[in-house]
């Protein structure tokens, strides 16, 4: 019952994230919503795994947690530098 309530709460939170991502208004809102949705989904997968007696689903949750981090870095780098290839750090003089 507790797990079912957890699922319901996560679904409500996911709906709010998706609403924010669709409405915007700025791209930063959308990025934050996408990142936060990823976190909710990691939790949701874990809860589903225990609810349906398949703890092996945690593997997929771990993949999400790792991949979501990389995606967020790629997006922030896109906003900040407009290229994927330059190293992070202060603006270098060469090009």
């Amino acid at each position: 019952m507790l797990l079912a309530a957890g699922v319901a709460g996560l679904v409500v939170a996911m709906t709010m994230m998706i609403w924010r991502a669709i409405v915007g208004p700025s791209q930063y809102d959308r990025m934050l919503a996408a990142n936060s949705l990823g976190t909710k989904i990691v939790l949701l997968i874990a809860v589903i795994g225990y609810l349906s007696g398949r703890p092996a689903f945690l593997d997929i949750a771990i993949v999400y947690a790792l991949i979501n981090f990389v995606t967020t870095i790629a997006l922030m780098k896109f906003f900040r530098y407009r290229t994927l290839s330059r190293p992070l750090g202060p603006e270098a003089k060469d090009g």
Partner: peptide, 8 residues
């Protein structure tokens, strides 16, 4: 390719 900045 852009080099790594000398002082990060």
């Amino acid at each position: 390719l852009p080099r790594a900045p000398a002082a990060t």
